[in-house]
Design a binder for these strands. Sequence first.
DNA 1: ATTGGCACTCAGCAGTATCGAGTGCTAATG
DNA 2: CATTAGCACTCGATACTGCTGAGTGCCAAT
Lengths: 348, 348
Amino acid sequence: MKEIVLEARAREILKDIIANYILSGEPVGSRMVAKMTREGLSPASVRNVMADLEEMGLIAQPHTSAGRIPTEQGYRYYVDELLEGGALPARDRAVVDAHLARVKGEFSGTMEQVPKLLSLLSHHVGYFISPPVADAILKHIEFVRLHERRILVIFVDASETVSHRILDTEEDYEARDLERAGRYLVEEFSGETLDQIRARLVALMAEEKSTFDHLLQNAVALGTGYLEAEAGERKLVMEGTTNIMNHPEFADVETMRLLFQTFEEKHRLVKLLDRCLDQAGVRVLIGSETADPALGNLSLVASPYRLGDGGRGWLGILGPTRMEYDRAVALVDYIARLLSGYLTRQNG
Amino acid sequence: MKEIVLEARAREILKDIIANYILSGEPVGSRMVAKMTREGLSPASVRNVMADLEEMGLIAQPHTSAGRIPTEQGYRYYVDELLEGGALPARDRAVVDAHLARVKGEFSGTMEQVPKLLSLLSHHVGYFISPPVADAILKHIEFVRLHERRILVIFVDASETVSHRILDTEEDYEARDLERAGRYLVEEFSGETLDQIRARLVALMAEEKSTFDHLLQNAVALGTGYLEAEAGERKLVMEGTTNIMNHPEFADVETMRLLFQTFEEKHRLVKLLDRCLDQAGVRVLIGSETADPALGNLSLVASPYRLGDGGRGWLGILGPTRMEYDRAVALVDYIARLLSGYLTRQNG
DNA sequence: ATTGGCACTCAGCAGTATCGAGTGCTAATG
DNA sequence: CATTAGCACTCGATACTGCTGAGTGCCAAT
């Protein structure tokens, strides 16, 4: 995409148009802008500039006799160039602090609270995506015999996330062996990520094949069984989806139906964010940039967070393209930083 | 409520009106009914009967020059008196059988599949409510030391439901003691419900207070800690909420917003069903009978299921009052019976 | 008891007129 | 030469109109 350069006045006017539209939701006319802008420009002059902005594709008219609304590119420019990254208001910071302090360090509580907070303070949809299980750090693992050839695997992550899975095995294991297998795995691999463990297990098996005793083989078999089942999985929690309905641009029932169906297939959003996994800091995807037609004209504000050394997850806000980006970015950024601090400290 | 008695012809006509309205969603006029009814009644005669039915409050006109639609009482009469309880079509039975066979006996899988099935086959919202935790039967319990004074309790139910909870304790327990405590509880209380266990624990403590060794005290303390935290809790899974949007009677965005907000507070539905816990068999609540204004003109079809001896849960369908009650009832009934069979057998 | 006939009601729809917000262009202005 | 006042024009929104047709209630005829 070619660089867009605007002189000061055009920038000012574009900013006014977008800011106004975000607040009111209605097309902004030249008179309105003329009133807002500091220097007493006449509507006619403003119109000239607006014509230029329209030619550049930054704003558009819904119909001939209407004011202008931002295009996606307009929002893009606004977010990239015109937003001065203010801090989150103290009031909101206090709310976040209070809620997160209560679940400090406990991952499952965090997973509940964060999307609620994001939704509450933004009035949009808040989401929280856990790091991939493959990056989880082993703290404890336990095998429980349920029946013959049916074993419950319980896995505890360094951040105290508990997950479990029922495995149907070929062989029938005895409770005592399972216990020892679990203890062995904890002693040997505690503190490593599942990916690392998997790698070392394979290496160990190749290297010392002959010297393996039955116990170790069991542990390995069960461990890899668990790993394979869980590996790429991530959990997504969304909160406040009904907020979407408050916005007039989604008054159309058909659009809404599509949208909510998308919400039900959560993995889509996860995939979407995986594509920009490399990025650090807050990232904003506007409208069609999400590359998911079902998301229609929604925007996504996302930030990664670090879970100790154990991997990265995502959190953020999903709302209409007409969103208060400054607030949204500040909020997401604040929570992501705070959370990384908590979870990392807790884990060190 | 006073008994309503109708002669054969009125019953026939009422049934035709409601059946037709359920299918078409549009008010049914006298001409329409005259065409359907076997004996060649003229529209004028039908009108007379309709006037009677309206007087009795079973049907109503949305406006003067429109046909009739059923009132809530009309639906009530229809469901109670006019519905011949046909069996679920073989086609649907096959779908249910196929899906449930795959998760046969495994509770967590069932909990996922059942609401999906209900939603899929009814095109409405399917829900599934687990039995209260207090009725769960202990199969295995395990304590894991996470930090000092921070313990993970893992509880496995006879139906292989796994739940866990993190407890912050007063005392710092050693890993070895925790292990022994867990083993003690399993040996002593395995096969009993949490409620029974709680009762016996209290009794034991009162009775042999002096002879208690430290270990047992620990086990009791931890066990009751877990019990108190979890006791009344039940889980609710809902599926297919977007189906609601397909129905024209919910085209209004404001109604829909309210409805979805209600869906987010799941406990409401649970409470609702707890009020009719005594009932056996399929139960139908129509419109305001749900006693929850936010549910607007929705109806609820519900049936309890038995989880072995371990307690009862609920499953069912939530849809517009204009619902194919015969199909819905047959579906809910079939799944509830099938499930009770599976889960009970598995557990014996 | 049933039914044909008839006057009546009323939602929905299409057509029409009006209004006003906002534009683009042009000519006048400092 | 940038700015601006003025003006003709466009077009969505709104309100009013009349028409149509589905459906009713009632009454008199069968």
